[in-house]
Design a protein around this nucleic acid. Structure first.
Length: 296
DNA sequence: CGCAATTGGCTCACCTAAAT
DNA sequence: ATTTAGGTGAGCCAATTGCG
């Protein structure tokens, strides 16, 4: 196996095609050259790595890519590490709430263990986090988890957050969440955008119960939802977060038998330091918060 | 029409061996 | 040990074909 062949294979698999790879490869290579190298590699291995027309990875190609991708993704960042400019780096992509409420403390603890640590923090949702991991731009993601992740990812569930409704003082007499979709009480729903997992799971669960409650006010962020609720503009869809300080007067109404929202860490390939230590710290912190939720 | 594969000519990096 | 010269082939490009 030739390292250059593998490098070209890596670019082609990542770009999803030979022509597209040529546009991305940082040095000048033309399509026929790449085409020939891929064929040589396939011949050498006695395997078909790509299905042609339409062009996509075969299972064997997928396995090869999973093996070599982490190597090529890290090579680019290796120079500064070798020159001793910084000994470790953590590239984390996470929800805004995680970065805002938990990262400062965790990062301080991590920096004590890894002096000279370089951290890059990206605020993204799950879909965008997956893209960043795939591009090799991030080491670890912490976001709300869909029911299933693509197979190439390893993951660890961190915490299960129960869905709740945030109710303003004007609805003090409402004691059960069901009242809002059975018609006993009427209120505009304040929720995250429809593509967010929390909103989707809530709508799906309502549908299962033969009800619906369309979002009246779409807010980008759970803090914003709470804020609008406190202004009496509607009832908010959120999750129970132990340390969250709710605006005055806003009451939490549990959504019994609704699915929990799972916040998970996920990554590709083998996790290295300092990500391993960071994940341990994160897991411990999540366990503490999980116990606090359970105690309620 | 777009994209992968093929063809043919060419360059240059690398190996070996001889010279310094 | 280093430099130089000659031979070889891997890999490049432009043009073209072939296929969905």
């Amino acid at each position: 196996m030739n390292l250059h062949h593998l490098e070209l294979f890596y670019y082609v698999a990542k770009a999803g095609g030979i022509s597209r790879a040529c546009a991305v490869i940082p040095y000048g290579v033309q399509q026929p050259a790449v085409s020939a190298q891929i064929l040589t590699l396939e011949k050498e291995l006695g395997l078909v790595l790509f299905q042609r027309k339409p062009f996509h990875l075969t299972p064997a190609g997928g396995r090869l890519f999973a093996e070599i991708a982490p190597f090529f993704e890290r090579v680019a960042d290796l120079g500064p590490v070798l020159r001793g400019e910084f000994s470790h780096q953590l590239r984390l992509v996470a929800l805004g709430e995680v970065l805002k409420d938990h990262m400062p403390e965790l990062l301080q603890a991590l920096m004590r263990r890894f002096p000279g640590l370089k951290a890059r923090l990206y605020e993204r949702n799950q879909a965008e986090a997956i893209a960043l991991l795939d591009e090799g731009e991030a080491d670890l993601a912490v976001t709300v988890r869909e029911t299933s992740l693509p197979e190439r990812f390893a993951s660890r569930d961190l915490i299960r957050l129960p869905m709740v409704l945030l109710v303003p003082p004007s609805f003090a007499r409402v004691k059960r969440a069901e009242a809002f979709w059975t018609g006993e009480a009427r209120a505009p729903l304040v929720a995250l955008p429809g593509n967010e997992i929390l909103t989707r799971h809530f709508a799906a669960e309502l549908l299962r119960r033969g009800a619906s409650w369309p979002t009246a006010i779409e807010a980008n962020g759970v803090e914003l939802v709470a804020n609008y609720v406190s202004h009496g503009m509607g009832v908010g869809l959120s999750v129970r977060v132990p340390q969250a300080k709710l605006p005055p007067g806003v009451r939490v109404l549990p959504l019994k038998d609704f699915p929990d929202i799972v916040v998970a860490a996920f990554w590709r390939g083998t996790l290295r330091e300092p990500s391993v230590t960071f994940l341990d710290l994160l897991t411990k912190r999540a366990e503490v918060f999980s116990r606090r939720i359970a105690r309620r």
